[in-house]
Nucleic acid binder design. Sequence first.
DNA 1: TAATTGGTTAGCCATGAAGCTAACTATACA
DNA 2: TGTATAGTTAGCTTCATGGCTAACCAATTA
Lengths: 127, 127
Amino acid sequence: MANQLSRLDHVFAALADPTRRAIVMRLCAGEASVGELAVPFDMALPSFMKHIHVLEASGLVQSEKSGRVRTCRLSPDTLVGAEDWFQQQRAIWEARLDRFEAYVMKLKKERAAAKRPSRTTKKKGSE
Amino acid sequence: MANQLSRLDHVFAALADPTRRAIVMRLCAGEASVGELAVPFDMALPSFMKHIHVLEASGLVQSEKSGRVRTCRLSPDTLVGAEDWFQQQRAIWEARLDRFEAYVMKLKKERAAAKRPSRTTKKKGSE
DNA sequence: TAATTGGTTAGCCATGAAGCTAACTATACA
DNA sequence: TGTATAGTTAGCTTCATGGCTAACCAATTA
């Protein structure tokens, strides 16, 4: 559980870099070797490899080496795990908005009732 | 658009820190002052304020000061924007999985047809 | 008006992240 | 067996991040 939380640290940190986001996007379309992945980036290979390592450490990407070529693939569970975090926050936030809306509606109703001087239940006095 | 991308950089970087994620979670439940937000954290106020600034710079949080108290609230659009990124990736990835599954199904079918020596359409020769 | 409260600014330090080059390993090809 | 290919390791810079203290406003409250 605390494990999961610190995993989120690494996932978001990994996704904060545009190079790494691009790699993830590329891997969504299917697996690829390190060399293939590196082509679009104007960067020395060791620098690029660091990004791969960060992605692997975060759990977003897995790789295995066969012969001299290392093939990388997405590890979708981790990606989905991060998405879940947003959905949880949104659930909380939307629930609050709903309550707020209900509250505003109630206020409106009371105001309308207060203004209308006729037969509706009406508190005396204030405004 | 490039603007949007670099915004994602900042949003994910902001969410990579557990303190800041906790702040966002807290603000999902409703607005709060800097002082209130800071209570659960064993951290000097200037350090804490840095986190608030990072969150504001990322667009995740907005704040305004009235009197001497600064009130912070969530800026949900930004949060939703980040969530969108995941949904887009997932769409691509799931589409690929669907194609892959279809491909596997087709393979299975062909294999079955090849093994069954009877009246189904059958390529000659190979395997 | 003096003291308290809530936040802010400035400046310091340690650590880590992102890039580089140079040199190395290990597989594949001729 | 020799050479090219694909990655890897080591070690170096530079800059950003996250924390601190100390001192400083500016509203409230006594």
